[in-house]
């Protein structure tokens, strides 16, 4: 079965890539995805960075801006097993994780793996599922394994969940609990395309769905190697300090009821490493951290009631924090 073969594949990997190779591969994936979603290259870049940081991505936006397109395009660009789960209110946890059913021929229970056993999981409209089902998925995301009837099944590697959801204000949704939002490395909003991108889109979509024509540009092995490469990117002490300063600023901010967790610091720097590698560098820069701060931190903060009532959102709080945290904490230095 597919989920058993993954350890064997990892053995064959021939070590990390050079910065140039990394950059080239990343560019290839990006170009591929951009062919489907026009004019959103920074968002795609961040999505890829989350993927290469072994994180999970939450795409949150209004319907119809291309959340599912992005997730699908990203998945198709990599030649690995892709599973899609359409979350609906009647979806059960066992549909996600799998179930043991009785095989009358063998006279025994046989495990039927659920949708979670793939490299890339697309969880569409995750906030339409009941909290019970959401919880099942989120547990898998954190532990990268599934335990059913006393048996523990390891999930594949690489493993990444790309979930989409509509903004919580929309009707018929079950918003993700705060603790579960923390499991997602980053939350991205795609936003409406600009006029030119929308025109280009109309032209492309005229004949065929570009998604259908998308070809994979790399395989799961390469992704594994890229992940290993990104992990070796140098993090200077100043940069670590900068990340800690930012995260602790979210904890002391007057508009925030609950700040970001230490897990957020870890994931912020992990993604920063990927961004640096995607730029062909073997060391990360504060610029990388700055690009990631809003996607990685904003969805983890819980604003005070006053902020919510005043129409403030956590993304603008993080952006504001980024404008005030000095890049170098040593006084008198810049």
């Amino acid at each position: 079965m597919a989920f058993e073969s993954s350890p064997a594949r990892q053995v064959r990997q021939p070590g990390p890539l050079s910065p140039q190779e990394f950059k080239a591969t990343a560019e290839a994936i990006l170009t591929n995805v951009e062919w489907v979603i026009e004019g959103k290259s920074p968002t795609i870049r961040l999505a890829l960075a989350v993927m290469l940081a072994e994180g999970h991505l939450l795409l949150e936006d209004v319907p119809g801006v291309g959340k599912t397109q992005l997730a699908k395009a990203l998945a198709r660009s990599v030649d690995c097993s892709v599973r899609r789960i359409q979350f609906t209110p009647d979806l059960l946890p066992s549909d996600v994780t799998g179930v043991s059913i009785f095989d009358p021929e063998k006279r025994d229970f046989v495990f039927k793996p659920g949708a979670i056993f793939g490299n890339l999981i697309l969880g569409d409209e995750i906030n339409r599922a009941s909290p019970k089902t959401q919880a099942a998925l989120l547990e898998c995301m954190e532990e990268r394994q599934v335990t059913i009837d006393g048996n523990t099944y390891k999930l594949r590697s690489p493993f990444m969940v790309i979930a989409t959801q509509n903004p919580v204000e929309m009707e018929g949704t079950y918003p993700l609990p705060e603790a579960q939002r923390d499991r997602f490395t980053a939350r991205l909003a795609i936003g409406y395309p600009d006029v030119n991108a929308e025109l280009a889109m109309l032209d492309h979509r005229g004949e065929v769905n570009p998604l259908e024509a998308l070809k994979p540009v790399c395989d799961g092995d390469t992704i594994t190697r890229m992940v290993a490469t990104a992990r070796a990117v140098h993090l200077a002490p100043e940069l670590k300090r900068y990340a800690v300063d930012i995260v602790s600023a979210t904890r002391t901010n007057a508009q925030v009821r609950l700040g970001a967790s230490p897990r957020a610091t870890l994931q912020l720097l992990r993604c920063a490493r990927v961004l640096a590698a995607m730029d062909g560098r073997d060391f990360a820069l504060p610029d990388d951290v700055q690009q990631l701060a809003v996607p990685v931190l904003a969805h983890r903060l819980i604003p005070t009631t006053e902020t919510t009532m005043g129409g403030g959102d956590t993304a603008s709080i993080v952006a504001d924090i980024m404008r005030h945290v000095p890049v170098v904490s040593q006084p008198g230095r810049y």
């Binding site: 820069l285 504060p286 700055q290 005030h324 000095p326 890049v327 810049y334």
Partner: peptide, 11 residues
């Protein structure tokens, strides 16, 4: 006008 939240690149 430069701010101390500017990275070297931004500066």
């Amino acid at each position: 006008e430069l701010h101390d939240s500017f990275t070297p690149r931004q500066t």
